[in-house]
Design a protein around this nucleic acid. Structure first.
Lengths: 150, 150
DNA sequence: TGACTCATGTCAGGATTCTGACATAGCCTC
DNA sequence: GAGGCTATGTCAGAATCCTGACATGAGTCA
């Protein structure tokens, strides 16, 4: 009977605020990445490959939160530009392990510095305790949604 | 010289976790909204109009985190389906105040219940104190990024 | 009053991502 | 070994969203 029964109060909704934060962060990342000729997914892919060399297309897609079809077209472009390499034939199964080239590594270094500045600015108003509290909270949300989704 | 200088550790990055949480939430919302024939932006628009009747196209776009061009095509579709109404002529300026129709309201009620279930599940593992801590943290991130962006 | 600035609604074109579908390789069970 | 199941890479088409651009209305200021 109350207003809560009729909808979701967006002013106090954690879900809405989560979308807002994610949207603003993405916009800021695009702003600093654009001068470097890179998109956010572009950068995410390179960053993932730097930390986990040899990741497959499907695995990259999952960790960049896009479909494997989208990641595939991105990888083809990156391969064409000489930023990543994939073997012509799969060493085992159908999985093609992808690796960063020196050229891709250099591109990533510039992008990574720019993105790090954005993240630092995002966290500038928070104490360490608040950051870890936020981290735990977000992880809890992800886990709850994933587990319940099955 | 340390590894941090070469990139961003995605395992401990709040920005990455933020994107993951937002992505999972959106996926879960799409899952429950699809049987109702609605998309997330679709639903967001209706929910905004329920709480702020008379919002303009541009204002809806900002609060739904899309461009006003995208919101415009969505509104045209919603208008065609009879879910919202806009006056043929602007009462003042060029702003066309949009309102929910009874039909749109009924659609929203079903969708809102489904989305609320998702949000409840997302918050199921968190105490009230954790929720408000997360809320403050996310708000701090948004404010820091917005202020510094100018 | 006239010029300037800003915000709005809208159209057109392009870029990005997604859904659907297919063939194939590895794993498990019988 | 045969069958079923899952995961992967890939192609094709469609949906979605964005960038660029234009005209218009409101407010500001000289």
């Amino acid at each position: 009977m109350s207003q809560d029964d009729a909808g979701i109060d967006l002013d106090t909704s954690l879900g809405y605020l989560l979308k807002e934060a994610s949207s603003v962060l993405r916009a800021e990342m695009e702003k600093v990445l654009r001068p470097l000729g890179m998109t956010v997914t572009h950068y995410s892919c390179l960053e993932l490959l730097a930390q986990r060399p040899g990741l497959s297309n499907s695995e990259l897609a999952r960790r960049a939160f896009v479909t494997r079809q989208s990641m595939n077209v991105l990888l083809q472009a990156l391969e064409r530009d000489g930023d990543v390499t994939r073997p012509a034939e799969a060493p085992v199964g159908k999985v093609l392990p992808t690796r960063l080239t020196p050229r891709g590594r250099r591109k990533l270094d510039k992008a990574s510095a720019a993105v790090r500045a954005v993240e630092v600015r995002m966290l500038s108003g928070m104490a360490e305790a608040e950051r870890s509290a936020a981290f735990r909270a977000l992880r809890s949300m992800v886990d709850s949604l994933r587990d319940g989704g099955v």
